[in-house]
Design a protein around this nucleic acid. Structure first.
Lengths: 344, 344
DNA sequence: GTTAGCACTCGCAGCCTGTGAGTGCTAACC
DNA sequence: GGTTAGCACTCACAGGCTGCGAGTGCTAAC
């Protein structure tokens, strides 16, 4: 017994219907609602076959059938093969980022909002993972008495800063002089390399051991921390609207997963840099998410780094709509971050 | 009919029991569990009085009684009057902030986590609302070709930054020179005043109109935006564990309120700078939160600004425990932000 | 003023039942 | 041989009924 054209059409109809309603779908429904010119009995036979092939599950004998993960997979694959993205009414989306957002983090927060509003699922937006940024400028800025702010600008436009203590005698000019030395010494180095170079530099800028010590500490720490990779989550409450989560315990599990941000980031990032991924149920690899699907897309910034946007929803997700939305928003973010600088 | 000592003791017992169990409490329970030396019948009479006085509500005739908002109010007030804070096992809390956290935002995120873990309610932490910071240093740092980073350090240690476009000819020294001028001109000014001064300065730093224009734009925008006031929310999923939220719709309302961050910040900030506030049910002023209570406390930073930490829970909250925890965490945050600089 | 006793209320869990959606199978039909 | 009508069967679910138990209010006695 093989998949033929007709089985495929029936499967498609079942999936469509189930995505829409969330209720197990029966043979009669298919034969009536989607006029295939077949009686319910015939559909019934086909459905029985489809079940045997592993595309349908039956929650209990006298209920309709629901698509299996395998079915969604097939569905999505054919969807993606066929020019994938239908044009959603993107007039409504074109101008979502006009409201003068500047800081990258603000944009990311906003994007998560927008995506979750459009999809009615949960949206996650990750800033690009900075892969070994190279130092471009180091500057010490006088802050309050006895402290200075270290600002490190990298080639990816990412700015890192921290306050360090300095001796009270230092004035602005001295700091500038030191900044120049540091910049010329460290330009082009990765944070890693900068750490290694510090001892050498310490000889050339004599008499400021304590300060350099602190600077070193900052570099050291910053190098190891994955911070500055910002993440925004939006629309977690949307999920509660789906009958899949009318069970409070399930909902709670889901929500607490959404709250453990490290884990969540890891999950979303698990797309291997593909421009689109769809992970369905068990494919997510997360036990808590066997009845969720994750759709991700990427956007890129000037430096060629990739950020990730993702949508988490029930397995019966409106895949085509979600893919379309992610596509559009992804492009918008790319435009925003790579064309013009994201400033005023 | 008046409140007397005995009525108070009974009310206390009822509240304690209800906070613990969440189930309407009956006269028999009180007479047995909390040995008052009174029979259930007597308690019954007293409870009837308490109901008449507005301290108890009866969900339905044959259920026990539950404390009204008025009762909680009384409860909290006497609690607060009496040296308020019981010593919770704070050995477990003392060292919650050791893990080398530096950036203020990280600390705030962490604090929200900690508080929600300790209380099992939802925690909100707000960074101080910067009230008219004064500029201390302005520095332009070369970023990528044709752009520079403006770093503004204020007297409150708050740093604002943005990328602006500059003409390509400018080198590091030129930028420094301009920085010096800007700093000497603007030191001590508020952002507001800085905006007003810009036209004047523009004459003195000739030939860089475009850059100054952008700088002006940045100041202008920054002045008006309440950003940089960071907010962290933790433990929203905790609320679903309480029977009060076993209704999914209710839970969803709550969660979507937690997601509208502006509104949430406003609500939490509505404490008028009091060192402790407890708002019970309707007192919150938020229709969606009539069955929630909000407890807030403040912490302060070097510049004397106040940040807010808050806990949102069901009205039958463990007020004394929550107050105690907020007290401790508040002190820790104050120590961290006002004693030493929050750096390495 | 306190308490024992009692009748009464009412939510809730458990059980039963009818209904309806859905299935699988068989036999007839084209 | 594929398709369809018919039929018996299954099973979740909603609705109605019932008994239980927790709780109350009232009254009368202590």
């Amino acid at each position: 017994m093989d998949m033929d054209e007709r089985k495929l059409r029936i499967l498609q109809a079942i999936i469509d219907d189930y995505i829409l309603t969330g209720v197990p779908v029966g043979s009669r429904t298919i034969s009536k609602k989607y006029d295939m010119g077949l009686s319910s009995a015939t559909i019934r036979n086909e459905m029985s076959d489809l079940e045997e092939l592993g595309f349908l599950d039956q929650p209990h004998v006298s209920a309709g059938r629901i698509p299996s993960a395998k079915a969604y997979r097939l569905y999505v694959d054919t969807l993606l093969k066929a020019g994938k993205i239908p044009d959603t009414s993107d007039a409504s989306m074109r101008s979502l980022f006009t409201g003068r957002v500047r800081q990258m983090e603000d944009v990311i927060d906003h994007a998560a909002q927008v995506i979750s509003n459009l999809t009615h699922y949960t949206a996650v937006v990750l800033s690009p993972k900075s892969i070994q940024p190279h130092i471009q400028t180091v500057q010490l800025v006088p802050a309050s008495e006895g402290t200075a702010l270290v600002v490190i600008v990298t080639d990816q436009g990412i700015v890192r800063d921290s306050v360090i203590r300095i001796s009270r005698e230092m004035d602005s000019d001295t700091l500038y002089a030191i900044s120049r030395t540091l910049t010329s010494e460290l330009r082009g180095a990765t944070l890693q390399e900068a750490c290694e170079k510090m001892p050498l530099i310490s000889e050339r800028v004599n008499g400021n051991d304590r300060m350099l010590q602190e600077l070193y500490g900052f570099l050291e720490e910053d190098r190891n921390s994955p911070r500055r990779s910002h993440m925004a989550v939006g629309g977690t409450s949307n999920m509660l609207a789906y009958p899949e989560y009318s069970d409070v315990d399930k909902a709670r599990n889901f929500l607490s997963l959404m709250e453990t941000r490290d884990k969540l980031a890891e999950i979303i990032r698990g797309n291997g840099g593909m421009s689109f991924t769809v992970r369905i149920g068990p494919e997510t690899g997360v036990p808590e998410m066997t009845d969720c699907s994750i759709v991700t897309a990427t956007y890129s910034t000037r430096g060629g780094q990739q950020g990730t946007i993702g949508v988490i929803g029930p397995t019966r997700m409106q895949y085509s709509r979600v893919l379309s939305i992610l596509n559009i928003i992804g492009h918008q973010l790319t435009d925003m971050f790579s064309g013009e600088e994201h400033d005023t």
